[in-house]
Design a protein around this nucleic acid. Structure first.
Lengths: 240, 240
DNA sequence: CGCCGGTTTGATACTAATCAAGTTAAGTGG
DNA sequence: CCACTTAACTTGATTAGTATCAAACCGGCG
């Protein structure tokens, strides 16, 4: 956690904004300028370096964050250390489990992350006072549930190659800088180890499948992290 | 769909009730008697036989149902027919995807099912008028998201034996007739094929693992569907 | 009785995990 | 600036765990 400062720029950011550039979840302008001002004044802008933990499984919930920039990974671990990523969050998602005393997942910064953080009590007050805001959060929750269920199909029923292709498609569509169409050139926000944990595969299998896609010309890889997709349709076919 | 009738018994059922016996989601009495009466008068009681579909993926949403009795399975299929169950719903869950024009999953009756169904417009009206009711639905959605994420760990990181044990534990804890503690004797609500689709395994693997647990004395099986668990702790150890 | 769906059991094949070296790129310190 | 270290990744050989294919079993029902 590097920098901490009150953020009145909250006004400009996706979740707590009046004119939100993102069209993903719709229904911005959920807060009156009064509510917005109060929330903004109670918020702090917080930076996490890649790898830092925002919240730990089964630990009390400190506060909630509007994700401004970066990628947050949500994971769970079994007693023996096996790990599974159970979600990725991008701006303008809200991080933190609402209406619970403890986190149900471990949340870590996958990349450098900027959050606008509000205390639990402040968030509860806003949710109480602004049905529109609460509605918007509910829409996010429903979308996260849809995404989790889509992912269950990938985890349960797809082959290693299909899993990796599905992951690349997911990142391509999320790496998009505000447009709605997937990008054909992007950086992976996760290491091979994280991708493995996301897909229920080992590092080696992920690496092999990526190498195979590269050899087949489905993708290009530069510097491990940067991926280019000459033909998105061709990649999509590989998703199963 | 066998019987259809207006259900004023709605008053007695979990989701739309004033004195709800279930302690799972808390916060009953979400509706004033006025709202309750209006909702009840607009509801129909509907029965589905085991195997009947309540909703199909990518089809318009007809209405919402308060699950009175039975088990509903939610699934997704890939183009080539591979199938994955992505959720199970028990009373007093609400069935149907809120705030969307289309269903995101296929919903089928796993057992005989009784629902109290309301139209989409009626549900939307109640959600609009009763913040407490909406809050309760939000809690259900958050819980479903937690459950989906727990299941992702099972799908992605557990062995076949651990998956089957986890499934048995899940059913044991849900088969409970209103108590909070898991049962030690219950009927499986799913066929081996469905269990396989739930766990991302084949029928044969499910069968083998169940036979192994039986041979090891961890469970008893009678008539394929009825399971007894002499020592729940011993089963839980197998869950990984 | 004989059929039939759901289930179990067995033999074999194949996918992905594991074990084990290498390779690459980015530091770090002399 | 270059040897050294290290972490992340790739590649190869072998093994283990499930899927697949195939056959038998069981219980219910016409």
């Amino acid at each position: 956690m590097l920098s901490v400062s009150t953020c009145s720029e909250t006004i400009d950011i996706p979740l707590f904004c009046q004119n939100c550039p993102s069209r993903r979840t719709g229904s911005c302008a959920a807060l009156s300028s009064d509510q917005l001002g109060r929330l903004a004044s109670q918020s702090r802008r917080v930076h996490y370096d890649a790898g830092e933990a925002l919240a730990a499984d089964a630990m009390p919930i400190g506060g909630y964050g509007s994700l401004l920039h970066g990628v947050v990974k949500l994971s769970k671990v079994l007693e023996d250390g096996r790990q599974q990523l159970v979600g990725l969050q991008f701006a303008p998602d809200l991080t933190g489990r609402l209406f619970a005393n403890e986190s149900r997942v471990t949340a870590e910064a996958a990349s450098d992350v900027d959050l606008c953080v509000v205390s639990r009590s402040a968030m509860e007050a806003v949710l109480r006072d602004s049905p529109d805001f609460k509605h918007r959060i509910m829409l996010q929750t429903l979308r996260e549930l849809d995404e989790a269920r889509d992912w269950m199909v990938t985890l349960g029923r797809k082959t290693a190659a299909e899993k990796v292709a599905s992951f690349l498609c997911l990142i391509a569509s999320h790496a998009t800088p505000d447009q709605d169409k997937p990008r054909t050139s992007f950086d992976l926000p996760l290491s091979r180890a994280d991708i493995g944990d996301f897909l229920g595969l080992t590092i080696e299998t992920v690496s092999r499948q990526m190498s195979k896609f590269k050899a087949d010309g489905v993708i290009g890889i530069e510097n491990y992290r940067h991926v280019t997709v000459p033909d998105l349709a061709r990649l999509r076919v590989q998703c199963g």
